[in-house]
Amino acid sequence: MKTLLKKPESLTDAPMHYCPGCGHGIVHRLLAEAIDEFGLREKTVGIAPVGCAVFAYNYFNVDMIEAPHGRAPAVATGVKRVLPENFVFTYQGDGDLAAIGTAETVHAANRGENLTVIFINNAIYGMTGGQMAPTTVLSQKTNTTPYGRQAALHGYPIKICELLSTMEGVAFAERVTVSSPANIIKAKAAIRRAVETQLNKEGFSIVEVLSQCPTNWGMKPLDALKWVEEEMTKTFPLGNFKDKKGNGKKGGQ
């Protein structure tokens, strides 16, 4: 008998706490598969954020550090500068990466820190129960924008891939989603490419994953998937924004 599918070794057996329909579990698995495929499990150090993925250290079967809110790229910088031959990743949400941790994100990217950032953009603060995120789209209702996000009052959703891809230190930036099997396959390819970027010592790599949050969007899981594809991608076009080595397409195609 041949095993066709199994749980990646880089995931533990701990049951995940994520809500039904959430995208985190899928992205955890994709990253764990990539770590397995490159044979990196025993030399990986992961940094968990504050937010829904705070317990990532329970799910990844690798050495993990739980960082203060938004500081994962700084913590990862410290780790990587001690262990340049190890594989170091951060796994962060939108509030963590693009609000309270913007400075750490931008400067780690600008320094070209040889790290891989997995960025979950679900346009909302999940763990605290549905407040506005830096990536909440215009007119989207959240608990702190009950009348919808308005540009004059709340500013515009931050486009991280677009922003970071202007920086010389960034080697790879791609926006993907996990809204369908086809998109999951593309997401996996992007994550693999990001891992490879670090292994080749090319510099900072980031994969932004548009992910569904049915609980805090107040939607059924299927509607949430549809909302990612039909609404979120209007503000956050999918595609490769930078690939120093590969044949990346330019700007959200």
Partner: peptide
């Protein structure tokens, strides 16, 4: 040995957290 001027005091102490986690004297 490695010296870094961080982008902020906050980043600096978190880099120390990371380096110490990785076993260095930071």
């Amino acid at each position: 040995c490695f010296f870094m001027q961080a982008e902020s005091e906050i980043a600096a102490i978190n880099m120390v957290l990371g380096a110490s986690s990785a076993g260095a004297r930071a």
